[in-house]
């Protein structure tokens, strides 16, 4: 189902959480991978690399700061130099730092937007050339229910970036559709990732447990839930889906409860 055989995918934020789960999923569907990791985050990308290799696929890990244009271009360049193509680009890397808005200075604002919004754009822009030439491509980004669909207090910067992704996806879908490139985003609800488990900047383990019971499906999501949805959107089966934001939130946005 939804074969990615011999396709090449670039994934940012691949060392943990949603990115790591999606990398494994894509590999099991037959894709070769270029994984972007940012070592100061402290996540161990080796486990992901090993899992991809065990699935019988080729993988390169590239140290990448998505706030650096040259880094991102080198990342996509690696896909072309090593595998000769880039079919799928998943811009997933992001940070979430809690800041009361009165104390949200330019530096925090700019840093978050630079990674969470412009970082997505850098990935898309770098992949657009080769995808246009190939007449095929899948541009994918991780947005959030926060900002795009609901409020998240003390995360105005993060919310602005995530809502910005939605506008980018829509406009780009219309622009590059004629080249056979689709552009979509997934808006995860509450997912048990290292980011969400951070009790300073997000819900933490207790908050996740508390939130889970209030979701229509009575649980929070797992990275694999998002990876499964990305698998569909990344596949040729989703050719006629573009400019869409797929909510993978356990029904959270239906109730706002």
């Amino acid at each position: 189902m939804f074969s990615l055989a011999n396709q090449v995918a670039v994934i940012t934020g691949a060392a943990s959480g949603i990115g790591a789960a999606t990398a494994k999923r894509f590999a099991s569907a037959g894709a070769d991978l270029i994984l972007a990791a940012y070592s100061p985050d402290g996540h161990d990308v080796d486990a992901v690399r090993t899992a991809v290799t065990r699935a019988g696929r080729r993988v390169h890990v590239v140290e990448t700061d998505v706030s650096d244009t040259a880094d991102v271009e080198a990342l996509v360049g690696t896909a072309l130099s090593e595998f000769g193509r880039v079919d799928i680009a998943l811009a997933n890397a992001a940070i979430a730092r809690r800041r009361a808005s009165a104390a949200l200075g330019d530096e925090d604002w700019n840093r978050t937007l630079d990674i969470d919004l412009t970082g997505v754009w850098r990935v898309f822009r770098a992949a657009l050339g080769p995808m246009t030439e190939a007449g095929y491509g899948r541009l994918l980004a991780t947005t959030s229910t926060a900002g795009a669909f609901e409020a998240w207090e003390e995360h105005a910067h993060y919310s602005a970036a995530k809502a910005g992704i939605v506008g980018m996806v829509r406009s780009l879908a219309a622009e590059v559709g004629p080249h056979g490139i689709t552009v979509n985003a997934i808006a995860p609800g509450i997912i048990a990732t290292p980011q969400t488990l951070d009790s300073v900047n997000s819900l933490g383990a207790d908050g996740i447990a508390h939130t889970g019971v209030s979701q229509p499906v009575r649980r929070v999501g797992q990275p694999d839930d998002i990876a499964a949805a990305y698998h569909y959107l990344a596949s040729p089966d989703a050719s006629f889906v573009t400019g869409h934001v797929l909510l993978v939130d356990g029904g959270r946005m239906l109730m706002r409860g």
Partner: peptide, 28 residues
């Protein structure tokens, strides 16, 4: 293809969603 995704075990945390399969018509 879209129905297969929504009908499969891959779809356990997506519910109540309206999946647009429109080639970008509504995004445009």
């Amino acid at each position: 293809g879209a129905a297969l995704f929504l009908a499969s075990d891959d779809c356990t945390f997506v519910s109540g969603h309206l999946l647009m399969v429109d080639g970008g018509w509504t995004a445009y």
